[in-house]
Design a binder for these strands. Structure first.
Lengths: 224, 224
DNA sequence: ACAGATCCTGACGAGACCTTGACGCCCGGC
DNA sequence: GCCGGGCGTCAAGGTCTCGTCAGGATCTGT
């Protein structure tokens, strides 16, 4: 059973997609604008995303840009525009397929099947372990010394963005963009606050972090 | 350089595709009917296949069926027919994308890029190594004799600008511009200070640099 | 509508970082 | 030999960034 996130601001189309996809055996979540789309994607980790380019708040390519740093599943773009340049732009921004409206539902489903067939061998272990805590990316659960710890959605978004690339530095802009959205790239204060909370919940000694390291002026790094 | 097999019985379109794909950096082979297509594919093991459904000898889905048991690369299907049922049939038979004629070349190229991107999702980390230290550009991490060394943002900017072009001289203006910005092209003093810090952190003997060389009056050079 | 959780925002001390100036060295030109 | 320019080193000042705390705004579920 695959989970799909539908991002569209047209309630009618959104509803039609939900019904069709449910009937085809997908679990469906929907988002009405770009910000909630990025957030929901980070929260729920869908297997694939259907993204309408005509959103009220963000440009479709901005959503793609926010998604792509960490989201590895297929993204199918819907658009009312059939212009070739739009297609090229979206595809090069990271979309895997591009379907112009109006479209045929059965074709959409076939394209989703084709994307999935290629997309997810996923041999990756979605569980990140350290000596002190484990992060289960699929179940969205964190345990510290065997005890389950509750994280808020924001804390989880930040943590998962970090532990997905162990040992790699993640820039402040990347973190802000993937957790709060592209418009928040300057709000580095948020990072300080929430990194503090994460350290208090996860680190054995929050004052001297062992796993969630700061690289001053650049970003943060998770070292297992 | 990827190799692509074009299967089409229309010589004119075939030729146009060959020219366009060559210009885009592909190696191109062509086949005019289904049987030679299957044989060529088996012989040459192309990275991807562009398959026209309207072939003289075999039905397009038959070619797909013959290809798919062993060919794992992406297959993009071309067709004169825009009927949804055809698309669904081809996609479910193993095609990864379906483009109706007439089509736009730039869109086709973009779709090929999208297909290829998905095929090889693991671009390995670009790591620069010397006998004494390694620079991991993607992870933004430097190790000296196996020990992680912390760099400040400015130090990192300078170092990465240098090691990206091993053996090549990088002028002072280039360095200043790429690290501090266009307004700082005269501040050569900055370079002396920070090159000194880098040498102290990376060189086995900072007084006699082995990797970070000065070219008086010109710039600096990283020699592996 | 209410209660609790969660998020945003501002202030402040501590520390890291960047900039700047001074000084000595080496080398080539006069 | 004397001089000047480019280079390397060092240290100190000022600026920016980081971590922390807490109060108020906002959201969520009942």
């Amino acid at each position: 059973m695959s989970r799909v996130l539908v991002v569209d601001d047209d309630p009618q189309l959104s509803r039609a997609l939900r019904i069709t996809l449910r009937a085809a055996g997908y679990e469906v979540e929907t988002a009405g604008d770009g910000r909630t789309a990025l957030r929901d994607a980070a929260d729920q980790h869908p297997d694939l995303v259907i993204l309408d380019l005509g959103l009220p708040d963000l440009d479709g390519t901005e959503v793609l840009a926010g998604l792509r740093p960490w989201f590895t599943g297929p993204v199918l773009v819907l658009s009312a525009r059939a212009d070739s340049q739009d297609k090229v732009g979206a595809l090069d921004a990271g979309a895997d397929d591009y379907v112009s409206k109006p479209f045929d539902m059965s074709e959409l489903l076939a394209r989703l099947r084709a994307l999935q067939r290629r997309g997810t061998p996923e041999p990756e272990d979605p569980i990140v372990r350290t000596d002190h805590f484990t992060v289960d990316l699929a179940a969205r659960q964190v345990t510290v010394d065997g005890v389950v710890v509750r994280l808020t959605p924001t804390e989880w978004g930040l943590l998962s963005a970090l532990v997905r690339t162990p040992g790699r530095l993640v820039s402040q802009r990347q973190l802000l963009q993937s957790v709060w959205g592209p418009a928040y790239q300057k709000e580095t204060h948020y990072l300080r606050v929430y990194m503090g909370q994460l350290r208090r919940k996860l680190e054995p000694d929050p004052a001297q972090p062992r796993y969630l390291h700061t690289e001053p002026g650049m970003g943060y790094r998770f070292t297992p």
